[in-house]
């Protein structure tokens, strides 16, 4: 219990009769980097705002170090937030913005100045103290927002899509910087993003959400390699999601042929979703293959080629470093280890 700094227990939230969150359970371990990942409107920001105290859950409890803090106002919580659009105070300069929390706590002047200077140095903004916040670039404002939150030495830092407004290159740099900061300071980060690549890069734990429900919780590797359902598989990276039937343990039938797999424990003839990553589909000679098709398009993507292969019933996305001519006939093969079987069969990909 003690190593979970934040726990959401059966948390639900209604907005005007409709459920934005449905019985969410999240446990955040101390000093971990946890990411809430999902498409817009999935409830990830609502979840973050419930942890910060800006929203009260309709149902359920929020625990902080094992203590119930449901209903405790934000200013009494030992968490700080980095807002999506930074929310810097326009009437204060950089230094006054960063010092805001310390001044509220009535820390003496010298100590405040020292801490602010130290924080600004950490985010590479030394010498910016007197600058007007509106004169700063997006990246610089972002750093001020992070410094303003971290200077209060929160036990948990909440970040609401903090890199969303930055350009790609800056975003990559900030990802690494944020991760370094988190490890150096030993602070728990709860991070909200819709960018799956960002989530995979930075997180210790990812919570994938959709329509107010947690779809899967796990490590990045775990979530990428073992998506628990078709939604997760589709959202995290690209996937071929094929309807199939589980013939028996370790044997699944899809695309008109039986394939060996590593999954078991399904009912005989249970309809399932078969998820196969584009990079796991091998192109082989047409004659020896169980799946045959025609290459419809070839796109160069830098590291690999992306090919669309049409098999008559469906189109497959394939990533390969070797190029195959468009319109040529090919065979497709998948190794047992790369076939991921999911319950449901409701979705067709």
């Amino acid at each position: 219990m003690a190593d979970h700094i934040i726990e959401l227990v059966d948390v639900g939230k209604d907005y005007g009769g409709s459920e934005a969150l449905r019985s969410i359970n999240i446990r955040v371990r101390s000093k971990e980097f946890l990411t809430l990942l999902g498409p817009s409107g999935c409830g990830k920001t609502t979840t973050l705002r419930i942890i910060a105290g800006f929203e009260n859950p309709t149902r359920g409890k929020v625990l902080f170090n094992g203590q119930d803090i449901t209903g405790v106002p934000p200013y009494l919580r030992r968490v700080n937030t980095v807002f999506q659009r930074y929310a810097l105070f326009p009437h204060l300069n950089v230094m006054e913005n960063v010092a805001f929390g310390l001044r509220i706590k009535k820390m003496d002047r010298e100590q405040t100045a020292g801490k602010v200077a130290q924080m600004l140095e950490m985010v590479n903004l030394s010498g910016y103290e007197r600058r007007n916040v509106s004169s700063l670039s997006g990246g610089e404002q972002q750093r001020v927002a992070i410094a303003r939150a971290l200077v209060n030495e929160p036990e948990v830092l909440l970040l609401d899509e903090p890199l969303g407004a930055l350009d790609l290159k800056l975003r990559k740099e900030m990802q690494i910087e944020l991760k370094n900061m988190q490890q150096r300071l030993g602070i728990t980060f709860v991070y909200v993003t819709h960018d799956q690549e960002e989530a995979l890069t930075m997180s210790d734990t990812i919570v994938v959400m959709d329509s107010g429900v947690i779809q899967q919780t796990g490590t990045p590797v775990n979530i990428y390699n073992e998506p628990s359902n078709a939604f997760v598989a589709d959202f995290i990276g690209e996937s071929n999601i094929v309807p199939g039937v589980m013939l028996r343990d370790y044997l699944v039938k899809f695309a008109g042929a039986p394939f060996e797999c590593v999954d078991a424990g399904f009912a005989p003839d249970e309809p399932v979703d078969v998820v196969i990553r584009p990079e796991d589909v091998k192109i082989i000679g047409e004659d020896e293959a169980r799946i045959r098709g025609i290459v419809r398009s070839v796109t160069f993507k830098g590291v690999h080629y992306e090919m669309i292969v049409e098999t008559g019933t469906r189109a497959w996305i394939i990533h390969s470093t070797t190029r195959v001519e468009a319109q040529s006939r090919v065979g497709l093969e998948v190794l047992p280890n790369d076939i991921h079987i999911m319950h449901g069969g409701g979705r067709t990909g």
Binding site: F83, A87, P90, N152
Partner: peptide, 14 residues
């Protein structure tokens, strides 16, 4: 901006 109010609350202001 509503988020300025929230930011102040977040930083400990009643």
């Amino acid at each position: 901006d509503r988020s300025l109010i929230e930011a102040a609350e977040d930083l400990g202001a009643d």
